[in-house]
Design a protein around this nucleic acid. Structure first.
Lengths: 232, 232
DNA sequence: ACAAAAGTGTTAGGGTTACACCCATGC
DNA sequence: GCATGGGTGTAACCCTAACACTTTTGT
């Protein structure tokens, strides 16, 4: 029998930075931590990686448990592994960022997990290095969204161009010219205009669009340039 | 005393995909694995994460041990954590990609570690999931290099524009127009022309350039667009 | 009628590409 | 003097950004 003699073993966790968009602002989903240490402090949604699952599996499991949702857009951020990041015992954590449609989540609001949405710019201090994770995830979201059409993941199936624009503006902390924005979005060919209008935002009403899934999948790698003068 | 009861613990390793450029082709550095299982098979440069170091620390340590070099450009790729990726015992591995000046390495060629450079497109089959790691790293290198000036990390302090162009062509597997390339490179303002010429490549000789470190550090996040018609 | 948001067109400028010839030197 | 790779200029095109007014409809 072969073995890797005497190497140290560690706990491995996943932590998910869950982004959502309420139509006006970018938000993140936090939970009140249910175990010591730092019990009842706010933290990211996380959990330990089980013996028979990959970190990706673990992140999906943990997300399902806390949001009721499956098939969420999930991307590995990086590993956080400073030796003393967890005061109890050495635990490394793989950070993930997730994009979800906040309205789908609403259906699950009566959950048992005490999760709560916070404005990204007005959130409580988090445990351990979770604030760093949020900051890294935000940066990566912006970077990625400048190049790939991932923000649709945070919108409902049907959405309007003004909604989409606000989302882009929120993520990039900038203002975008309406005309240029709609022209660029149109030129991606990713959107299909629907007959129906959303009258909630204005008297005139804005047409709903949906994502052309085929083109979305085919063009996901396409470089977009939706944010003028982007500084990362 | 608080503890995380009964959670499984795992081994954690790092594996480095080390890229270099010999003036003509992109290469990677591999080692003959020195421990069971798969002893004497080719593998990436790797090692276990020690009790008092972060994965980043471990990658730097392992690289120094195998190349003699410090301060190498190093970037985390992702974690590889399929439950059965290592047949002996569950081991997760953090993949890193590293860019080094192959000529600096040459000074260390009499090492004890049996490392060897291979053409990226003509390398032996690697152990475990290391082939996947190499493939992922190549993709990421291309992606990153399209947007940030990281390829200079693989060149000597003094280099010529034709050398740089060949490197870009190798990484992107494409041909680039000489005139447009030198104009674009020039417009970044990142290069300083030296008086000296490299006569090894031609009779006329090509001027050496060096990187303007100040601008390099300041503009690292600047988006470049050096590869026309880039498909990632 | 008016308020409030949606939707659309034009133009100037900058950047990108495609393309071909001269230059410097060693042999 | 000729072969070899290095180095440069221009013109057409496209994309981008800047900019303001009209449309729709609920009240």
């Amino acid at each position: 029998m072969i073995a890797y003699s005497s190497q140290p073993h560690y706990l491995l966790a996943v932590d998910c930075i869950v982004f959502g968009f309420d139509g006006e602002h970018l938000k993140i989903l936090l939970v009140k931590r249910g175990l010591e240490p730092e019990i009842n402090k706010w933290s990211l949604i996380g959990g330990f990686v089980g013996a028979n699952e990959s970190p990706d599996d673990a992140a999906n499991r943990v997300l399902k448990k806390n949001t009721g949702l499956e098939g969420i857009y999930l991307e590995q951020l990086q590993i956080y592994g400073e030796p003393n990041r967890d005061p109890i015992e050495r635990t490394l954590s793989v950070g993930y960022f997730a994009l979800i449609d906040i309205h789908k989540y609403q259906a699950q609001i009566n959950d048992d997990y005490h999760a709560e949405w916070f404005l990204i710019n007005d959130r409580p201090k988090l445990i351990f290095d979770h604030d760093q994770m949020v900051s890294d995830a935000r940066k990566k979201l912006r970077y990625k969204a400048a190049l790939h059409p991932i923000l649709f993941e945070m919108l409902p199936k049907k959405f309007t161009i003004p909604q989409l624009q606000i989302l882009f503006e929120e993520v990039n902390d900038t203002k975008i010219d309406t005309r240029n924005f709609s022209r660029k979005i149109g030129s991606t060919g990713l959107l299909i205009k629907l007959a129906e209008k959303d009258k909630s935002g204005s008297k005139k009403g804005a047409f709903y669009f949906k994502v052309d899934k085929k083109k979305y999948n085919a063009n996901f790698q396409a470089f977009l340039n939706l944010i003028p003068n982007l500084k990362l």
